[in-house]
Design a binder for these strands. Sequence first.
DNA 1: CCGTACCTCCACCCGTGGGTCCAGGTGTGT
DNA 2: ACACACCTGGACCCACGGGTGGAGGTACGG
Lengths: 221, 221
Amino acid sequence: MSEPTDDSRRLRVIVADDQAAVREPLAAVLGMSEDIEVVAAAADGTEVLAAVAAAPADVVLMDLRMPVMDGIETTRRLSEEHPQIAVVVLTTFADDESILAALGAGARGYLTKNAGRQDIVRAIRAAAAGQAVLDREVQDRLLATARARPSATERVLPPDLTRREREVLTLIGQGLPNRAIAEKLFISEATVKSHINNLFAKAGIRDRPDAVRRAIAAGLA
Amino acid sequence: MSEPTDDSRRLRVIVADDQAAVREPLAAVLGMSEDIEVVAAAADGTEVLAAVAAAPADVVLMDLRMPVMDGIETTRRLSEEHPQIAVVVLTTFADDESILAALGAGARGYLTKNAGRQDIVRAIRAAAAGQAVLDREVQDRLLATARARPSATERVLPPDLTRREREVLTLIGQGLPNRAIAEKLFISEATVKSHINNLFAKAGIRDRPDAVRRAIAAGLA
DNA sequence: CCGTACCTCCACCCGTGGGTCCAGGTGTGT
DNA sequence: ACACACCTGGACCCACGGGTGGAGGTACGG
């Protein structure tokens, strides 16, 4: 968050979209904003990388579906090699996978193509300032995905497991072999096996892989 | 997303924070923006509700920690009774729980208190336009939480896994032993072991329990 | 005082898992 | 024609996992 947003210099923006019918008008309309300067237009990811190599830029307005190198991969490379450049995704698609992939790749904004000029300009300014702007729908989806996980310990495990058995199950769920569990609990490996046999019988667990799944499902791991 | 952002009318903003030392200067500095009008200042949630009942507003800039009625509860009520009013959270705390609670309650923005005046103004404008603005840190946390239990296939697996190897990993993740996997894929157990050896080497998986965890984390199971 | 639950540990058995090395068959691109 | 990736399969070895059947310890409640 930078208070003194440098208004003395226009934001250098690169527009990336494989469709010229989208790219050209978009670049033109963005250039009308007095604080934005479109320094390049790219039809695929390689052209974006070439553009940032040729001249400095602040923000890349990125389509996801592009030939040769798509927006996800391009975003990933940009955030690795040029972390100072902010990527704002502008795409038709707002499915969970695309959103997670894009933001996970380092995008600092995600707009759908029914965003207006004002919305896009605002997102560019925010991204340049280190903020993230998301369409309302995108935020809702992201939030829904985040909340989709079970918060509390589930009832998939019988309540009559002893404390020790729970501990052992937790460590199994973390992928530890019996020897490591024994060391961690300061007991012998034989004892670990005893606990395992008991808890397997109680909880109806077949084998170790099954135990891992149950432990994760129960929120122990 | 509304293209014709109505610039002919100033955005009516309510500032809610229990600390007068924060509330008053904030209201003053926001009022300096020509497109923003601070129509009320509130010290807790009940004052916010009273203010929106008394006069129309567009955006509420909301602190989370407030006496009587906190920001979460106030946000929840606002989004129920006045869904046209956008809530932007401005708080010191950026823990996962607060973020999820606030956005889940209907907040359309989440800023930490090291945001500058420009950042706050931008967030207010975006929220009024239906967009969501998050601090970079907040976005990262939200994304991390969303990816913790993903529905989509993750990037935790190397991309050079073959189709067969993915299938085998999926079945391992479901707890099946090699024999059952072999039957399910109509191949011999020896072949299953070959695939397992290859995919373990490629993905850096140590043993079967580890494979189960990775499969679940990757959303294959 | 005695039963019961829990934690601790040992010995034995053997099935599955996983590593290693190898090899034939197929399809694809050069 | 050739290399290469992939799927397929077999043989061998042995470590780890898991079942069985014990045994001795403490702590608690009837």
